[in-house]
Nucleic acid binder design. Structure first.
Lengths: 395, 395
DNA sequence: CTCATTTCGGTTTTTTTCATACATAAGTCG
DNA sequence: CGACTTATGTATGAAAAAAACCGAAATGAG
């Protein structure tokens, strides 16, 4: 009966909105009715009213038992993982991965394929989307709520396109939305690869507030997390770590056309270029390093040293609590982190590094794809999005 | 009559709180009742209820002129400048300034004095506070609502003390609240000098979202503004620009004990150290430069070049819309900015600098003091503080 | 100059929402 | 098993906000 009147109303409760409660549940900060009450300051009545909406819409479900301290156990709430899916599309320079995730962030299925480095958007996008469509078809289920997608380099999240990236020709300024048409009328969120990595990191460490998330692979990118928020910059071009100048690269020409970029001495493409055995990809170099090949380990260590030089400035500037190393190169964490430490610590203020931690990315090899899923989930399940979804189902 | 019931109630309206409306008025985003209605989504009734509280508490007053488009002109609202004052205390290495400001940010009076560089907190603080007390006594008026204070180096805003700063010995870890007792039971907000500068900048350019605010004086500091918020870092130690390493300083020992810091080639203390005429302070060097002395201008230009090298990394990383040059050195804006440009632009990505502006700080010589006032005002007039003040007057 | 028009803002009425109070459910502990 | 503790559903009353209504203050057309 109360359910009926709830469904009939057209406006959403004010103040702490249902979406805000949903977010508390999703982040795990409050998962019971009473915890939600104390967290929001709302009365049980008001909390229940909002939860009724969320439960009726199928966005939340009742979880299992909760440990009790002598009284009636509270019902725990959790995100209805099966209420929808999101699609993750991680596009790299030579490889693309697609993954289907539920609302919990649990992977339902994923696939990956290699492509020719330098493939243009019109060449590659149909393949990527085809893979995604096939994945969806093979795993029919709840509706697709959002797509999260990552590209190397700077992106324009509004126009859904890569911008000013000399690194992936054939993509710059090409609107990508048309290619995504086979997926239906679904919102698409685009980020660059380092940003996606940061989202994955936040999924695994929700309490991270200030961090630098590095993606060290063929190129070198970075995402800045300040007070829990991703810094995108005025043109969405923040995080250009790879093309900062380092003295050691002074006479080396970068693929961006400039001279002296960090990438020329620490980028994956430069590292394999230094070898005489014609490796195809950094991953092969990392594999050698993990097998114990001395020269590969030394090369990665040197890359870490150069990376540390530039990171020192970033650490002095932003005083993060953690530097997260991700990307293919970070799979050889010890030599890379070792090199970073050698140059980072001597060049930073004691105060800024006293509590600084150097961490490997939580999701390792899958971080890029998980990050795209997290990107989609963070937008699709944002408080405002949840509220919008509620008014849509109620109106 | 409606006024009476308003005063009698004890709880504040929910949703968009009176403090939120106050903030819209203060920032100028909405200064009429109807504008506030459309900005918040509240009905005119709800807006009026909140405004009644704010007007009754004397925090807002009715303004005058409003352009009308054929209908009844709306009453404009403005912050009741005379409802209180804030005190600004800007403590530098060799000079301290105090200022009394109204809630509009208009200066009522100010004073300044030189002190021996290296004075300890117990030595200096009584003088500073004494100056402030004298200023208050000379200009009796509305009650003091907050104190904004700035120090060079990293600060602990909670403990109200300087932290880990090798630059101002005799301050590190000394709690400053006891010294401020003569000012009464007033909230005190501490920031570092560059932070204060950023607050002053935001006062003059409220639409600034992403910027680097430089304080180039005896030392070199920086404040990072990301998405309109100040980045303080995990330990409040963000902004250590002056002690980033530059190649040119490789063999020069910094006052922090390290070698190769930016300050050794671009800090004010280093610039006057290079001179043979025994200048006492950068301000004298700047005065010479403004008078056209070639060598002084060249020195400042070289400092700008070194500054630009480090800024290049920061710009690549954060993609700000503006780099604001403040501090004593920036009073010689042309040579400093010229030097910065020479090294900054060639070392940054085209995308990050396409729309980048290099600006002088809005308040010039007074920016430090204005920044302290802005720091106090931003906290004293924050939505939450306004709401707290309302419940205090109503309860 | 008068009057329609437009927009603003105060007042009253009605609806909605929330908190308090009460009742009930579901466990633990002695 | 019953006292106790905690959690949640259900009514009732109070408060706040929106809607409707009305007066006020300007412009501009005739």
């Amino acid at each position: 009966m109360a359910q009926m009147t709830a469904v009939e109303r057209t406006r959403l409760p004010a103040g702490p909105t249902p979406g805000a409660l949903f977010d508390l549940v999703r982040s795990g900060r409050a998962v019971t009715r009473s915890a939600l009450g104390t967290a929001t300051g709302l009365s049980r009545t008001a909390v229940s009213a909002r939860l009724d909406l969320l439960l009726a819409a199928g966005l939340l479900t009742l979880g299992e038992q909760v440990t009790t301290t002598g009284g009636r156990p509270s019902e725990s709430l959790r995100v209805a993982a099966e209420a929808g899916t999101v699609l993750a599309l991680a596009i790299g320079r030579s490889r693309h991965q697609v993954g289907l995730y539920d609302l919990d962030g649990t992977e339902i299925a994923s696939d990956a394929a290699l492509h020719r480095a330098g493939s243009s958007a019109p060449d590659l996008m149909p393949d990527v989307v085809g893979l995604a469509v096939a994945l969806q078809a093979a795993h029919p289920g709840p509706p697709l709520l959002a797509v999260g997608m990552s590209l190397p380099g700077a992106v324009d999240t509004e126009a859904l396109t890569s911008v000013g990236s000399p690194v992936i020709p054939g993509w710059d300024g090409v609107p990508l939305r048309p290619f995504l048409e086979p997926l239906g009328e679904v919102p698409v969120w685009l980020g660059n690869d380092a940003e996606a990595l940061a989202h994955a990191e936040l999924l695994g460490r929700p309490d991270l507030r200030d961090a630098l998330v590095i993606k060290a692979s063929t190129g070198i990118g970075l995402a800045v997390l300040a007070d829990g928020r991703l810094v995108r910059g005025h043109d969405g071009a923040a995080g250009e770590l790879g093309h900062c100048r380092v003295p050691a690269g002074a006479d080396k020409v970068c693929r961006c056309g400039a001279t002296g970029c960090l990438e020329t001495v620490a980028g994956g493409w430069a590292l394999i270029g230094e070898r005489t055995d014609g490796l195809d990809h950094v991953r092969e170099l990392v594999a050698l390093a993990r097998d114990g090949e001395t020269e590969a380990r030394a090369a990665i260590r040197r890359a870490g040293q150069h990376l540390g030089e530039v990171l020192a400035v970033a650490v002095n500037l932003l005083n993060p609590e953690a530097v997260v190393l991700g990307g293919d190169l970070s799979m050889a964490f010890d030599p890379l982190a070792g090199g970073v430490k050698e140059t980072l610590y001597p060049r930073t203020s004691e105060l800024a590094t006293r509590r600084l931690r150097l961490l490997p990315s939580v999701h390792g090899e899958r971080a890029g794809l998980v990050g795209c899923a997290a990107l989609a989930l963070d937008h699709a399940l944002a408080p405002a999005a949840i509220d919008a979804r509620l008014v849509a189902t109620l109106g």
